[in-house]
């Protein structure tokens, strides 16, 4: 796994924990364990997203695009070709 893949995997793992906790809390809005689980994973998700975005490409619309609009110049998530290296 490349560094990019490893970091995206981290984003997806914490992102999934956030999605799952969100659905659970919809029907258990006062559950202290659910709220704690959500808070912990949301912070880890935001941190992983920020790290991925600073090293590779935007996941959310950028707050400071600087000199290049990377949103439209980096790969979309459905693209995968085993013969091409993603970091290049």
């Amino acid at each position: 796994m490349t560094e990019r893949e490893k970091l995206m995997s981290k984003v997806q793992r914490y992102g999934f924990a956030v999605v799952e906790a969100n659905l659970y809390l919809d029907s258990h809005p006062t559950c202290p364990h659910g709220l704690e689980y959500y808070t912990k994973n949301k912070a880890l998700y935001d941190e992983a997203v920020a790290e991925y975005e600073s090293k590779f490409a935007p996941i959310n619309l950028p707050s400071d695009p600087k000199s290049l609009w990377k949103w439209s110049t980096t790969p979309f998530p459905w693209e995968y070709d085993p013969n091409l290296k993603e970091d290049e």
Partner: peptide
């Protein structure tokens, strides 16, 4: 809605 530029779960199909 806003788009989040990632898949919910990784998909990398070789064959």
């Amino acid at each position: 809605w806003y788009y989040t530029k990632k898949l919910e779960y990784p998909i990398k199909i070789k064959n």
